[in-house]
Design a protein around this nucleic acid. Structure first.
Lengths: 346, 346
DNA sequence: GCGCCTTATGAAAACGGTTACATCCTAAGC
DNA sequence: GCTTAGGATGTAACCGTTTTCATAAGGCGC
């Protein structure tokens, strides 16, 4: 008489087990390792599962198995097309292999990043996807202490002992600057993203500068401006450059959004691109090919990069041998925003 | 002699307790309810905690306390400025009140949304943030069965029995259309987002149509086009409208991205905006005020909307009484892309 | 028909916290 | 001085799984 009522009070896997007349072990097995249980039992259990509307309790599962099939990712901000796309791609890949993604943001603050890492580790993530290799010094120790595998995405640094996947930003930036040099420009300005806590931005600036130096070109300090990731700031920087008595004939930018700002401001100020000014971006966001003039830029395969980051961790967790440093190819996409410099000059 | 080694084998909270010479209960209390433990003990425990580098294990905590201080969110896609901003805002608010966010995407697929909801519930989220009120029928039952509070964000439907926060899309769209009607336009086209599984898009179309109908204006079928959320598709739609023998003098768009597409295509096709064609957007993304011509559009306070969604759930979970249907104000922002119709017509 | 190996299943001990309850101590009330 | 209320701390059961280990049930060679 009280048998049924006892059953009714049970929760979770025990309710399923009771309903199917089996042990909890069998239910667990039929979920995690179906081949290990006989077909007849499996069917009975499957039936019981949706009879009670059973949803496995992930925290309990994680607690018991010490694996979560979940990865954590810490990006500076989600409000940036590059990261949004990357995360979307990573998430898609992970869900295709039965993993989940726990996403947090650091706002370009290394302390916050460290805190979020602690948070995610406490959450039981199996691995961590980080952006770049510019981290709080405590982070590496934290990861090592807790034996959490990780990967730095968006950069390529084969000489460092940490896994990474991304394009060689320095080389790509070099290519971008080389492009305008080949067109005949000698007066080239740089508008870069903030380099602080952003190794990617730093590598790009280094690439730009190397290209200039190799061609024996000067870079007056006032021709290099750093700006945050917003259109407004980029426009202000452009205004600065365009108002100089001696102004560059070409501007290479740290990313596409900055380039958009330069493009917009040039146009508003009565300059014609590329006639009066050549502009090169970096990233090749969707907008770049739609703008008028369309933007010459460095194409970076974001989707591929982030998916590979996921692959690396998933494979590592499965115990497979994987490539620690993976380079992702970039390419220069020449569009309408670059042309030879005005003939009148020099 | 083996006392110390015994201590060394302990994990987590017990290691801390042993180190501080207290019970696990006290450690737990000093973490979750610091006032309940004496200052001296608290200090000793705090010291022990970072001596062992203790990171609380969230899954265990969730399992035991049946609360996760984590909310789940399911959005169609993260790769859309509106959602990216909203999520960023929500995340920021949640972290300020000690909550975390578990984010998943549905790709506008109701089955996937349901699956993700199941997933998140299994994950132990305390509440769910959903987009709109267009869900799989099983979703409501799932939420009710598991007593998971939720809120529909981005819409305002005071007549429905579900919590929601957002702007009145129908009214806002009506306002947008009224604007061009007031300017004197009689021939108005619509380029909307796909209405399938997207009540927001549907409401906007309804608002547009009501405004037209109230002014006795016709809407020939070929003047209403639905397109996915991409610049390319919007441009194709614009091309279609502009190539019609009898074409509209104004186009109201379901969102800003669509409007950008129309703007770009009009310009590429040799039309001048707003001289030959007026264009109205919806959302007021960052780009809208930078474009040339800048875009007349409906401003929607995305950040506020999503933050309020978080507030609603957090308050509900704290047992506070909250407003079930919250309307967020929109406003028409008139910029350069709208003007009276060409005088030559009529 | 008997021992033995294999395979399917069950019983029960973790996993790392929280929390109801018990206990101890101190100080206030008489 | 004795009782007692109440606050600080400890004890241990429990949260819902997984997983080790034991056990039962077949299948096989002899």
């Amino acid at each position: 008489m009280n048998e049924p009522s006892a059953k009714l009070t049970k929760q979770g896997i025990r309710a399923v087990a009771a309903r199917a007349g089996v042990s909890t072990a069998s239910v667990s097995r039929s979920l995690n390792n179906p081949e290990a249980v006989s077909p007849s039992l499996r069917a009975r259990i499957a039936q019981a599962i949706d009879a009670v509307g059973y949803i496995p309790h992930a925290p309990a599962r994680i607690l018991s198995s010490r694996r979560s099939r979940t990865l954590g990712a810490i990006v500076p901000t989600i409000d940036n097309t590059m990261f949004a796309r990357g995360i979307a791609s990573l998430q898609k890949y992970l869900s295709s292999v039965g993993y989940m993604l726990f996403l947090t943001t650091s706002g370009y603050d290394l302390d916050v990043e460290l805190q979020q890492a602690r948070n995610l580790i406490g959450r039981g993530v199996d691995g961590l996807v980080l952006r770049g290799d510019c981290h709080h010094e405590g982070l590496r120790k934290l990861l090592a202490d807790n034996a959490v595998p990780f990967i730095n995405v968006g950069i390529y640094q084969p000489d460092r002992p940490y896994p990474c996947v991304g394009t060689n930003n320095e080389a790509a930036a070099h290519r971008a600057a080389a492009h305008v040099i080949e067109l005949g420009h000698r007066k080239i300005g740089i508008v870069s993203a903030l380099q602080r806590n952003n190794d990617r931005a730093g590598a790009r600036v280094a690439g730009f500068r190397r290209a200039l130096a190799e061609s024996g070109l000067e870079l007056p300090p006032e021709w290099h401006v750093e700006v945050p990731y917003t259109l407004d700031d980029a426009r202000e920087a452009a205004r600065h450059l365009l108002n100089l008595r001696d102004r560059p004939t070409a501007v290479v930018c740290g990313n596409d959004v900055i380039a958009y700002g330069v493009l917009l401001e040039a146009e508003r100020s009565g300059f014609s691109v590329p006639r009066d000014l050549s502009v090169v971006g970096f990233d090749d966001l969707d907008w770049s090919r739609h703008l008028r003039p369309s933007l010459t830029t460095i194409h970076v395969p974001t989707d591929e990069t982030w998916q590979r980051a996921g692959e690396y961790l998933v494979r590592s967790l499965a115990g497979e041998q994987t490539i620690m440093h993976r380079e992702v190819d970039f390419s220069l996409v020449v569009r309408e925003s670059t042309a030879p410099p005005p003939a009148i000059l020099k």
